[in-house]
């Protein structure tokens, strides 16, 4: 495959990545959310792998494989397992309804392109992907602020992490492998700990609605 083709493929995958992000915000079902996250992570893995292949950086390929394993398989399975164990309602509960969230998301995409435009990025890859990464990050933030369930907040955090990862890969071809491994481990442990916390929250409040935690304030 020649570089030109791979490059346009990466470009296309970036587009799909954005769509997957929109999917997370748009889907009313928790399970669908998680699946979209898995898709998102899958696309991320592909992009990482292709960038690594294109620039002949072997450790990026390794990262891609790790992403594939961890974020598209393990973490979604953990989520599904938590949902089964808790028997929680499948619908996403939100402060702002889905159409409005989507409008906000579109605005966020504009914002991210607007703010990165003036950064005078040189390479074409980074010019395309830095705004995308910022948008993913903001989407994660949006999910965290607008959703009620603790589980969706964890999802938002993971989405933000994906955004950061994308930024690192496309801007600087990834951080040193050791650092990346550390971050992966963090994400996994984070997901597990939050899973446990969600259990605890349910134990204490008989529900994982974060709203009820207002009674904790002084």
């Amino acid at each position: 495959m020649d570089a030109e083709f791979i490059f346009s493929l990466i470009h296309f995958l970036g587009l799909l990545l954005l769509i997957a992000s929109f999917g997370i915000i748009a889907s009313p079902q928790l399970a669908a959310c998680i699946r979209f996250y898995a898709v998102h992570a899958f696309l991320l893995a592909l992009i990482t792998g292709l960038v690594g292949y294109l620039n002949h950086i072997p450790h990026l390929v390794a990262l891609a494989l790790l992403t594939l394993l961890l974020k598209t398989v393990v973490i979604p399975q953990v989520f599904f397992w938590i949902i089964r164990r808790l028997g929680i309602r499948k619908e996403v509960e939100s402060y702002i309804n889905i159409p409005f969230s989507l409008i906000l998301a579109v605005l966020l995409v504009f914002l991210s392109f607007y703010v990165t435009e003036k950064m005078r990025l040189t390479s074409i890859a980074s010019r395309e992907f830095v705004p995308l990464a910022v948008a993913t990050l903001l989407f994660g933030m949006l999910v965290m602020t607008s959703r009620k369930k603790a589980l969706t907040q964890v999802l938002g955090l993971l989405l933000m992490e994906n955004g950061l990862f994308l930024m690192a890969v496309t801007l600087t071809f990834g951080m040193p492998l050791l650092v990346e491994l550390g971050i992966f481990f963090d994400v996994l442990v984070g997901a597990v700990i939050m899973g446990i916390l969600v259990f605890k929250i349910r134990g204490a409040f008989e529900g994982i609605d974060v709203d009820q935690m207002t009674v904790l304030k002084g």
């Binding site: 914002l111 703010v115 003036k118 602020t145 607008s146 207002t214």
Partner: peptide
Amino acid sequence: IQTGHIQLYLSYIFITLILLLLFGI
């Protein structure tokens, strides 16, 4: 402003982040 809603605290951060981004550029 301390309502105890996690989401509200998160949105404080969110809004600050966006404002800082706009301020930065």
